[in-house]
Structure formats: C-alpha cells, structure tokens
Design a protein around this nucleic acid. Sequence first.
DNA 1: AACTGTATTGTTATCGATAACATTACCCAT
DNA 2: ATGGGTAATGTTATCGATAACAATACAGTT
Lengths: 344, 344
Amino acid sequence: MNVSSNVTLKQIALKLDLSTMTVSRALNNPSMVGKSTRQKVLEAAKSMGYSPNHIAKSLVSRKTFTLGVIIPQISHSFFPEIVRGIEEIAYDGNYQLLLTQSAESFEKEVKNIETLRSKRVDGILVSSAQTIVDYKYYKRVINAGLPFVFFDRCVEDIGASCVSVNDRTSSRRITQHLIDHGYEKIAHLSGPQKVTIGYERSEGYKEALSKNGLPVNPKWIVENGFNEKGGYEAMKKILDLPADEHPRAVVAVNDPVAFGAMEAIRDYGLSIPDDIAIVGFSDDIRAKLMPCPLTTVFQPAYEVGKKAAEKLLKIIDHVNEPIENIEVITQNRIRESCGCNSKN
Amino acid sequence: MNVSSNVTLKQIALKLDLSTMTVSRALNNPSMVGKSTRQKVLEAAKSMGYSPNHIAKSLVSRKTFTLGVIIPQISHSFFPEIVRGIEEIAYDGNYQLLLTQSAESFEKEVKNIETLRSKRVDGILVSSAQTIVDYKYYKRVINAGLPFVFFDRCVEDIGASCVSVNDRTSSRRITQHLIDHGYEKIAHLSGPQKVTIGYERSEGYKEALSKNGLPVNPKWIVENGFNEKGGYEAMKKILDLPADEHPRAVVAVNDPVAFGAMEAIRDYGLSIPDDIAIVGFSDDIRAKLMPCPLTTVFQPAYEVGKKAAEKLLKIIDHVNEPIENIEVITQNRIRESCGCNSKN
DNA sequence: AACTGTATTGTTATCGATAACATTACCCAT
DNA sequence: ATGGGTAATGTTATCGATAACAATACAGTT
C-alpha cells in the first residue's frame, strides 16, 4: 500500500464540524481557541495521524527552512566533517539540508543549483567544482538575492561571503618550520594552480622562501595533482636530478601527495628525515601512522562547516549582513618527518 | 539586498498580455502553443530570470522529487561512501537528498522523520540510531504509506526493506580463516549486542566455532563498544588472564577495536601474529598501515548506498514492490595480522 | 452558407494552509 | 435595556502552478 493518503486540516475540520481556520488555530495558536475545542482537535489530529503540510505552508510563507549544500564529493577528504558541522548548526536553527554533489562537473553544479532554486531553499552553501568556467552564473544567482556562502573552495569578488582555511599563511608557516630546522634547499610538490588551495599553498611556500632570502628554484617546484600517485611521480622527477641538486626538504600540497613522495624517497634508498625531510597539509588520518610520522597542517573542518552555516543563517535573517571572508585558523601537527622528535 | 523577489508565471503573462496558462504551456508543453508566442515566452522567462516554483508544483502533484536520508553521523565510518552512492542514484532519477543526522539520539531521529514527513519527501532512507527504543514509531510511519528503506542498521519484521552487508556470514568466514590457520583458542571483542552489527558479528563468530567443534569460552568474549579505547581495554582484560588461558587469535567486531587491541598486545610485549593473531572488520583506511597490516573484511559501502536508493525508487514508482532484505557481499582483505604473508 | 475540426488561447477550480477581515455570542457597565 | 468589548469561530482571498473544461478563430468540406 503505497498511497500516502495524507490527512489535511480540512478533513479534521469536517470530522469535528469546525472550520479549517479553527483547526489551524487550535494547532498553531492555541490561545485563540476554546479549551474544549482545542482538546478535540488535538485528539483528532493525533488519532488521524495528521502531519502538517510544509509544502503548503512554504507556498504562503515563502520560507522552506531548507538550505542547499553543494560539494564536489561527499566522501572526499574533509567534506564529511564539514557537512557534519553544517548540519548541526542547521538542525539547531530548525533547518534541514538538501545535499548535492557536483563530482567536479560544472554542468552538474549548475543543474543542482537550478533545482535548489526551484525548490526555493532559503540559502545555498557551495564548495565549487574544479572545472568551473563561468563565474557569471554565480553572479546572476547571487544578484537574484539568494543568500549564498562559499566554503573551502571560494570564488572571490563576486559578492558572496566565504569561509575557508588560511591556506597561504599555513603553508608559509609550515615552510618556515622547515627553514627553522636549517634546511635551505626546499622543494614544493604543488597542486593545480587554477584551484584556490593549489595556488594559495604555493604562494605561501614562495613567501616563506623570499622572506628568508632563499632562492626559488623552478626545478624544485613540480605540479602533479592532489593524490598519492601524483606525489610519487612528482617526487621521482625531482630525485632524478643529479644528487648534488637534490633538495634537503619538501613541502607537499597535501598529505596524499606527501605519502606518495615518501614512498618515492624510500624507493630511492633515501631516509626520512635524515636525507630528505618532508611536510604535508591536511592531517590525514594516516599521517601519524607512516613509518616516519608525517608533520603536517591540521584543518578544523568541522569549524569551517559551522562557521559557513552560521554566516548563511545570519544572511538569511538580517537584510544588511555584510560580505565577509572568514578564515578558520589551522594548526601545525609536528611529528617526525620534518626532523623533530627524531628517535635517533 | 536579501529580498529574493522571484518571478512568477503571472508576471510573465502580464508583461506579454497572455494568460498564465499559455505561459505555463509554452514552458512545459511547447507543442500546444503557437510558435511566435512560445518564442516570446522563452525570451521573457530568460531575461526576467524565471525559476519555476517547485513548491507550488509539488502542492498540486503531491510529489517533491526529494528523498529523506537519516544517518547517525555523516563523518562516521563508511557513511560518506554510502551517501555518495545514494546521491548518485538519486541524481540520475532527478531526485535530491534531504540529509539529516540523528547523532545516535532516537529523539532527534523522530524529530527529523517528522520534519521530513511534513516536507512531503517521496521516501525515506534510514540507518537507525543505536539508542532506538520505540519500534512502534517506525511501524506507524511505514503503515502511513511512506516509502521506507533501511540500510546498514536495520529493524526487522516491521514491513520495510533493508539493505545491508552480510555481517553474520562475513564474520563466520573471517573466523573460519583463523581456524584454517590451525588456531583453536579464539577470542572475540564484541560490540553492543542490541545493535544489529554487534549481534550479527558475534553470532557469525560463534557459528564458526561450533561448526568446527570448538568450544565457546565466555572469558574470551568481551563487549566494550566500537572504538579504539574500548578495544584496548577489552583486550587488556583478556591478557590479564593467566598466560595459559590466553587465546591464540582474536576476532574484533571492527577495525578500530582491532587497532586498540593490537596496541594492548604490543604493550604486553607480545607479537602479532606470532603470539596472537587478530582480524578486524570494515577495512578502515588505516588497516594496511599498521605495523603488522590488519587482515579484515571489506564492506562495499558505495554499493550499499546505491542498492538502497535503487530499492527506494522502485518502491516509489511501483505500487506492489515487494519487501526485501538485500545483502551486499563483503570480501576478505587478507594481510598479515592473521598469520598469512608473514615477512619471517 | 452552414458545419466540422483543429490549433491556440482563456477561465475556473484546486492543491493545503493561513492572513485578513467578518461574524456571532455573550458578558458587563451604565 | 442598550451599547461596547472580548472571546470564539467562520469566510474569503492568496501563495504559484496546473488540470479540466471553455471559448475563440480560422481552415477546409460539402
């Protein structure tokens, strides 16, 4: 039996010989209704299994208590933690989440946003796809007045707030940590420069070098994606240089790339951190389990989700909420791959 | 400017001096409308930034193209992968997901389901909270005719289909693997028996022992939650037995428990697998990185999500879709902690 | 010229709930 | 007894879209 025959106010009213208005009031504004009437209505509603039709309510109130969330892939890196944070804030404010994945496809992203708009969500949270081409599209949606907040992967100067991690300064800080160890020849396994986090982390790396008067050697900067395999190959390319051109330390754009690089270093018979030190970014759950535990940067993903949802709710509730770039601060996780805490 | 002033059919109609019906038809049933009229409507709709109001449509059609999903915690164990599977199937069928978390609280779960019902989702997918007390509540919702599918954590004999992993047979199989190694004294670090996966995995363990004529020793069965800490303490309790009562192998209810147990074993100066062999369940991303890589059971989470969503869509579309228990088959991941592939 | 058919457009009622206004009944003060 | 006030309930219109039915115009047929 799949015919969800939903009970309506009208049916309750009919049964009790009342007007629908009275029934509605008995359920929502009890003080405006006679005591005995209210009692009868409550009983009938319960026994008939009444569930208020939120759709009809939304049509009148122009409010759905629903937020749209768009992420590249829910199971990827720290998105589960971000979504957890978003959901908790939403729940506390009586909102629910329409969760969609873009799978890094701009087309899917647009289709999802269009559907969310049609469903009249009260606001949208977006971590944009890597393949994004048409910023104008976002601009139109934002100008149409839909509350909008970017998180993690932001699009700048487009009239929307953004919550992210201080990628550049974090990258600069962890690079500085290597410099403080006394290393001067420091390589960088970078991510795609079109992606914010790829670009920002590279900039942080370069800033740290310049600030300390160290030269940036183009041979030591290799861009090859965000995963283990990319890291392995990128590192190999560097290790194929003559031994006297080898760097003494490596800054990887994220932990998986660092894992790949560590394997490459071992495959070359070199040791971490004695021959080559290395640091990552993201504090992957595996980082501390590496043969030489990886020094890396921890990103408070849950906080990012919370802050993004909080900002969105503020925009929804207050007409003149300002546009902000909110940076959630990372923390270094100093382990052994940088040369600290060495067992020797 | 936060006033999302949404364009309506009426506004387009007014501007073009047409009836709303004609505008509606131009957009949805183009063949019923004159060519030049259609052209004008399409242009106006685009230039005015028209977005069809799905809320109003839903009110008439009694269909929202939205599925409710309830999970304990999105960032926990394999839920991200399950949700990814669900979302992909939903997307292909033009549905979207309202994602909610119960945080293992039955009260939250009920509140979420009530809201989802009010929002008139076309169906609900549930992985039930551990603290669930009142199965009657589910029964009422299901009897009300709302398409309903459980996944991973199921409630049986309640009139709803269920998609899960073959926990019992998987547990029996991995236990059998230890027996095939020749081990006879096999302990079990179990999970809470009220929770399906806890109970089923224990049963599988016991079945394997009985089937091979091995006695079940109550001292070797310790129940202490689902995480590392619990595993550590449970294992400690067993290792505190006189040495001649030590088991030769251990079946842990999941990988985190196994990780904790492995630490306890090492802390007792014993070696894995030479003194005590151990197996886990879930193929946690860390399993293969352990000092002695953990033999465990891989659960195809993505498949579970896909199957659950597919079943739900079938129930929504076909009145007489039967109730089914669908089991997704696991695979052993044989590594070294069981005694296989040993480096010695 | 009257008739039928088709293509195109318009009107009305509806989905379920509620805001805004209207009505009724009854109590109390003067 | 009359008027004013309040508590309780009822009526109507509305949110935006669409199903069902209605109307119009014009072409082709006999």
